[in-house]
Design a protein around this nucleic acid. Structure first.
Lengths: 137, 137
DNA sequence: CCTAATTGCTCTAGTGACTAGAGGTTCAAG
DNA sequence: CTTGAACCTCTAGTCACTAGAGCAATTAGG
């Protein structure tokens, strides 16, 4: 039996966040001590590690809830789990592509500033004048 | 003089978002018609385009406010503007690096699922068992 | 000039995934 | 038995919007 603090130390998930996950239905309401404090079993530790991992991978609370529901039915086809992972992958790739465009543009903006005062600062001019951009966005 | 809808159409910023920016102090409170509707001058159109551009580049409202304050003092050294742009560039690069790690891992997870049912689904096992990961995170 | 459709107004509340704080209770070590 | 850390619940705040209610003003057509 782990206290909420134990769980937090073992998974790296902060204490209020664990309570939040419980509230959101990702963790089931655990047993309580006589004094009403949470006491978690090993299964809950593992589930929290799962949640942590999935969050690190950028899955939303909702996606994680779906996966947890899924994993409760070991007999179902895993196409859904596969789909969630693939969707996540697609969204990550999209975000990367978008950020790389920004990187390019910021690079140009941030390295070309030769002015001495704000009046002729390239950063501010570039932000004001879209036409200085390398490409559309 | 532009109505809020004109401004919205010209900049691509939604009407409620324009009001939100005003509330946040990014746009100054504009003149009003006799019937209390906002009437924007050209300067405000330009400022909104600036804001839009900066938001597209991922700058926070706070950073944008700083840049706007800065641009009001054309005589100041532009080191601050430069710093904001560089910080933004660094944060974008960080985000890209992080996402690329996720991409790698999701790729592995999403493409290796050969199981037919959730019981032996690689996606769910990989999320449960951190040790299946290619690298630390 | 009148009417209807569109656009505008303010205000409140909701989103996601937490985080912070108040004000109180329980637990474990010494 | 005391003390201080850890725990409890509840509310509110974060960021950058978005949605909706319930009205008022504007504009285009007839």
């Amino acid at each position: 039996m782990y206290s909420i603090g134990d769980l937090s130390r073992r998974t790296g998930v902060k204490v209020p966040t664990i309570r939040y996950y419980e509230q959101m239905g990702l963790l089931e309401a655990p047993e309580r001590s006589e004094g009403n404090q949470r006491r978690f079993a090993k299964a809950e530790l593992e589930r929290l590690a799962f949640i942590r991992h999935a969050r690190d991978l950028g899955l939303t609370i909702n996606s994680i809830r779906q996966l947890i529901d899924l994993s409760g039915h070991a007999d179902r086809p895993c196409a859904d789990a596969d789909r969630i992972a693939k969707e996540q992958l697609a969204s990550v790739r999209e975000r990367i592509a978008k950020l790389q465009k920004l990187e390019e543009e910021l690079e140009r903006i941030a390295t070309c500033c030769t002015g001495e005062t704000v009046g002729d600062c390239y950063v501010i001019r570039a932000l004001s004048d879209h036409s200085l951009c390398g490409h559309e966005h």
